[in-house]
Design a protein around this nucleic acid. Structure first.
Lengths: 117, 117
DNA sequence: AGGTCCGGTTTCCAAACGGATACCGGATAT
DNA sequence: ATATCCGGTATCCGTTTGGAAACCGGACCT
């Protein structure tokens, strides 16, 4: 999950941002990003596919159903939106993002073996 | 990951605590619990296996290697301990646990279809 | 009637994950 | 010398995950 940049920043989903470095994840691979995409307001299926570059319809459907089942998002009139519960997740999510942003260099160094080794 | 109870509480790893309800996860299935186990001090391989009921040696090894590779834990003299980086993760981890603890009922209700449905 | 878009579902497939089990090398105890 | 424990590793296997691609029903346009 891309957590390094501010919400909905242009490069939030930049493939060059190896977000799987982030040890903190929300739900499945895409759930965190989906919640983030809905932060500013409801969105439709095809709208979500734009920022979530590379996601297939099947996987998006599955992630959405899981989020819906858990009461984090809601579907109404063809639009997905955060429930209050989902919205309340934004706080911890931001905390997680802040942590990763803050320790990005260390994570990178560790992966490259520059750390203790 | 078991997040409902306080760190190292007796039932932290109670199988009856369906911790996969928690949408926030750290690393792989066991990583969060491992970090939590090391919170109070270093531990050896076999010590870790006690609270992590059911984990096999192979999986524990793999999780430990991943945490080590990412610079979150360190291995020295047969003991695993948190690095400063790993320790810094405890904050967001606690935040995530607090969130889940706080919204446990809602999560449960959603899963049972008692929510909007 | 035919074409297009939207919001999916279905099928197929490869890779990753996690568990069970057996094995193994070094240290220590007997 | 043998047995045991510790800290793993190797092998096998079933399940899950996620991607590619094809298909599909309803709405809408023309």
């Amino acid at each position: 999950m891309a957590v390094v940049t501010a919400p909905l920043a242009k490069d939030m989903f930049d493939p060059l941002c190896p977000s799987d470095l982030n040890p903190i994840r929300v739900g499945d691979k895409w759930a965190g990003m989906i919640v983030r995409c809905l932060e500013l307001g409801p969105a439709r299926f095809s709208q979500l596919r734009v920022p979530l570059t590379g996601i297939t319809a099947k996987v998006l459907t599955k992630s959405l159903r899981a989020l819906e089942r858990d009461g984090l998002i809601r579907r109404a009139a063809g639009e997905y939106s955060l429930t209050p519960l989902g919205r309340s997740l934004l706080g911890p999510l931001d905390a997680a993002c802040a942590w990763t942003r803050e320790h990005w260099d260390e994570l990178l160094d560790a992966r490259e073996g520059l750390y203790p080794h």
